[in-house]
Amino acid sequence: MGLIGISVFALLTVVLGGALGWTERRLRPTGARLIDAIDLLLPQTQCERCGHPGCRPYAEAVAGGAAMNRCPPGGSTTIVALASLLNRPIVPLDPDLRPMDPFAVALIDESRCIGCALCLPACPVDAIAGAAGHMHTVIARHCTGCELCIPACPVDCIAMVAGERQAADLARRATADAAHAADARRRYDAHRRRAAAQALAAEERRQQRQARLSARRSWDDA
């Protein structure tokens, strides 16, 4: 009587476990879905600490088998989440990478800014407002704290300061971070689209100039 109960129950759990394992393997995200899923777990600082030009390219590399412990702003949270998504063992953060405070934002010392506009293309999320010859400023709400603008500045007038997000209390921080990451992802995509469009336009102009030059040369030759 008891034996039947135990064996039936054991059979039930084994069958269920087997079915679940099969479902897990069948439904594990692959391809573009997997890249999306990895990208969602990354902090979207676009800081390039991992050696890739942004979070999305890093997600593509991880989906292709690259190491998943190369995200300093994400830290252990990101590694644990990625390990469970990818079924890989948990490994510590790569110690060779430069650490980063994800709650700091860049601040331009406006009295020293010369308006050179060199920091504008360096910002991966277009969080710096300004134009050539005019003073620039960082829109703190959009800044991800990636520090990529700091080496771009020829007069070293950009410094990292504790951001306003630091003040958010712990309960609100999680949702605030999710919203901030979504905003950073959107702005990074826009930045990349615009950079690609500008590169394309520059290439077209170069070809037209080339065509004009060769036309003039053949005119001169004739």
Partner: peptide
């Protein structure tokens, strides 16, 4: 698992 596959 299904939700993770359909909508991450």
């Amino acid at each position: 698992f299904a939700i993770r596959a359909i909508d991450p």
